[in-house]
Each structure stands twice: as C-alpha cells, then as structure tokens.
Design a protein around this nucleic acid. Sequence first.
DNA 1: ATATTATTATACCACTTGGTAAAAAATATG
DNA 2: CATATTTTTTACCAAGTGGTATAATAATAT
Lengths: 206, 206
Amino acid sequence: MSEIKRGRGRPSKFDPETSLQIAMHLFWSHGYEGTSMAELTEAMNINKPSLYGAFGSKENLFRKAIEQYMAGPIAFVGEALSEKTAYEVVEKLLLNTATFLTDPANPKGCMVLMGTLSCGKEAEAIKQEMITRRQAYEMALKQRFILAQAQGDLPKDAAPETLAKYVVTIHQGMTVQAVNGASHAELEALAKLVLQNWPAPGNQAK
Amino acid sequence: MSEIKRGRGRPSKFDPETSLQIAMHLFWSHGYEGTSMAELTEAMNINKPSLYGAFGSKENLFRKAIEQYMAGPIAFVGEALSEKTAYEVVEKLLLNTATFLTDPANPKGCMVLMGTLSCGKEAEAIKQEMITRRQAYEMALKQRFILAQAQGDLPKDAAPETLAKYVVTIHQGMTVQAVNGASHAELEALAKLVLQNWPAPGNQAK
DNA sequence: ATATTATTATACCACTTGGTAAAAAATATG
DNA sequence: CATATTTTTTACCAAGTGGTATAATAATAT
C-alpha cells in the first residue's frame, strides 16, 4: 500500500501506525505526564527528531494516540449506543467495560482518565481536552436515553440526564476499581447490580 | 503552647501545621507529581533546606499532607460509618460527598485519587499507598454492611461485598464528575437516584 | 562578651525534561 | 557518475527536577 510509491530520499525505517500503537500503550499505562519522550523514543525505536518530524510534539502525539484508542480498544462504547433499548445499551456498555478493564492484554485503566485527572500546569490543555471527551460521552448517552424515552423503553418519569450521569459515573468508577485491582467477576457483579435496578421497562432479569 | 519553651538556636519562622496545610492544598490541586518542590517552597514561604529538615522528602511531605486530608476535609467519610442503618450510612456518605466535591473553597476532586491514578515510575510507591487507602475504605464499608445485615436493616440476600464496591464505585465516579465540572445539584440528584434503588428495608423514599 | 545551638539563606549538585540544529547516510533522478 | 532529496544520527540546548553542602544569621546559655 505504501510500498508501491517509494519516495526520493532515504527510506524511513519505522511504520507510523505501529509506532503510534506503541505510543498509545505507553500513554495508556503511565498517563500523559508520566510518559517521557525518552521512554517513547526508546520503545518506538525512533530517534527524537524523527518522532518530532512525524508527530510534531508530545501533545500532538498524545492526541493521535487517543484517537487510535477511541477508534480501537474502546470502539465498543460508541457501538453500544446503537443497541435496541436503553437497557441493552447499558448492559452492553457495562459488561463490555468489565471485560475490557480486566483484559490482561490491556494496561489497567482507561486512557481518557488516567493521568489527566490532575496534572501540572503544562498539561492543562490535554487535561481539558480529556474532560471534553468525557462530557461528550455523557451527552451522547443522555441523547440516547431521550430517544429511548420517546420510543417507550424508558419510563416517562425517568430523568435521562441523571441516568446518563449515573451510568457514566459507574463507568468511570469502574475504571478506578480496575486500577485498584478489581477482578472481572467483581466488576461483572457490579454491572449486574446496576442492571437489576434499571428502571422498567427493560428491567427483566437476565 | 509552643511559645513557653523557646529553643536555643535561631527561631524558625514558619509554623509546620500551617505549612502542611498549604502543601495539602497544592497536592490536592495538582496531584503528587504535578506539584513541584519549587512550587511548594514558594507557596509555603520556606526555603528548601528548611522544608527537607522538617519533612524529610517530597514523598514524606505528601504522606503527612494526606494524613491531614483524611483527618480534616474528608473525616465525614469515616464518621458516616457510624450511622444507625446501612441506608443512612450511604445517605450521609453520598450526600456529603456531593457537597464536599462542589464546595468552592476546595480544590476540585479527591486527593486520594488525583494524580495517583497513573504516574511515572518514580511515584509508583505513592500510587500503591493510595490504592491501599482506597481498598481499606471499601473494606470498612463492606464490614459495615455485614453488620447491617446481621442487624436486619439489609436484606438477607444482599451481597455486602458487591454493595460496598458499588457505593465506592459511585463515590469515586463522583470525584471524576466533579473534575468534569458537575454541579452540586447534579451530584445530589445522582446520589438520590442511588438511594432510591437501595435494597429495602431502608428504601423508604424520603 | 562569647561560645553554643538551631535555623535560614545561598549556591550548587547530577539528572531529566521537551525540543532542535547540524551533519551523515541512503535513496531516486539526471 | 553526480546531484537532489529525504531521512537518520549525533550532539546539543535551556529549563526544570528532587535533593544537599556550606555559610550566614539569630537566638540562648555561659
């Protein structure tokens, strides 16, 4: 695909996509500030000028990495929204989250949360962007619940806004639990507890 | 109290307690790694050798600060455990948390969570200590629910362990919500939603 | 007054941070 | 071949990191 057209100068020895994947895992593991350019260049097997040539800056690299993250590892979050009922949306969301957060192949925790909850003043911009992402997620869930209410699979007296905040709060709390070392069984039990209490209709157990 | 017996050498110009309070607020605002010794010394109006003489190291200063934090700002968490019923424990816990997290006098967020969710490898020790603190909190809540079950104000078929994890997850998720900018009204509505679903007995809607 | 003691202040340490300038190497085109 | 082009490599930068040795200073005890 990119081998057909060979440029004119010295060939670059790294594949930007795989390098980005490596960066994603590093940021995912140690957060934005907790990951240094030195660690990144070493893990990616790239010299710093090449990295800066390809990605511009540490901030930009992180932004590209987080896009990869959202398109890949946590694509299931966006997909859950298109389930048929509000109950199924939440079911898919929380059960998949439990699995995702305890997958041994993944770094513990969520990249949108880790290391950007608090930070020094240099990372303030990135922190704000992560806040915006989390808010957008909550907003999307709220819209989905409003739709569900219109479609009748959520009670008339339910508050979509509060329910959205509730689910997001559970989701983000589960992330902390995963960092604390919670097992898949524990997170699954937690998710099922939430589903049990979900406002009818849709509150059929199992 | 400390004015009666005046030491022999040059008098120290700072009060360790108020200095510690300042350090607490800084760590609270920007996390462990996000706060530098330079910022600390400047805010405390102390030179570095004095600070190291009084507190030993950055790690130690943080530990002292977190003790202050637990004994002061979030003492209500421990106090909530001695409420009469499980329902009242959770009620006091979550409603006070909503108020605490949106108090304009406080930095946004919880010090036991902020900046220690992920970190570089130098802060790994502090991160672990915070994890332990969070686990201890969950454990205490679980024990309280076991007691409640024995006293009959929690159903026989309830799972104290899962309920404890549930409440702690909500609590920690609320912290993230506060960082995201949630208002007191929003967090209160969230807390009341949780209380509505609390397993009877104790599930009387106020 | 003078020695003693405990603290403050200044200057500094080695190391790491994100970021870059300049030179060297590898390819394609003429 | 030589030349143009693009990359890698090496070396470096100023600023900041946590932490400390040394000297100045201010109080008390003799």
